[in-house]
Amino acid sequence: MSTPILEVDNLRKEFGGLVAVNDVSFKVHPGQIMAIIGPNGAGKTTTYNLITKFYPLTSGNIIYKQKRIDHLPSHKMAGLGITRTFQSLQIMNNMTVLENVMVGYHCKSKHGLITAALRLPLYKKEERDGRNKAMSVLEFVGLESKADWPASSLSFGEQRMVEFARALVCDPDLLMLDEPASGLNIPEMEHMAELIYRVRDNGVTVMLIEHDMGLVMNISDVVTVLNYGQKIAEGTPRDIQNNQDVITAYLGEELDF
């Protein structure tokens, strides 16, 4: 099998006495859609926050493209090609849709305060490139007609799309989606699933936290199951559906595979 793009090795996070993520290891292979599922409080989003450095690790290694990245700050991730979306939407309400997406182009551009203040050639070139790139991504998600709208005026589902677009604009290698379908209606969810497929087909590796089992089982190549901070299963969607531990973990919840 190919070398993994992301390798998480004995990842551990303790909040005081609580072990939120308990020595979790997994590998993500290039070109895959890898889903992380688990009951509420299983440590899925915490795992994301550890990989993207929003929390410091208690212990463990994170290896991305065969380099350790666990010592890097969160703002270095986008530049390395790791972008993410958020379960609780993180839309900049003080900006337009286009501006929101153009923030995603930050790590692809370099111009600083003085270059911008004097409108030097580099500024003009990067602004033009960023704008074009952002518009093409907005077109991809179907929001190009609302580019100049204030982001706050969009519906919830559209705001999810803005976040998705913002995470795509810098051509990531690893896209980490945190419940991209939550709060979406059925057509929106189908649209989202199709977009995730298309992104994967463009060579982007996708990680996915999702509660909607229909979506997870449909689109994932590999599923990792967390429960109480521990990995309890890993495998293809079919394996997971028949795994006794997983069924026990979800006991009481209706499993709608």
């Binding site: 929003f54 986008a78 972008t83 993180q90 923030v103 913002r166």
Partner: peptide, 16 residues
């Protein structure tokens, strides 16, 4: 503006 809007999102997009 991104810092104003959401520090979390700004940081994840590479804003120091």
């Amino acid at each position: 503006k991104a810092i104003h809007g959401s520090e979390t999102a700004a940081s994840s997009m590479g804003v120091n």
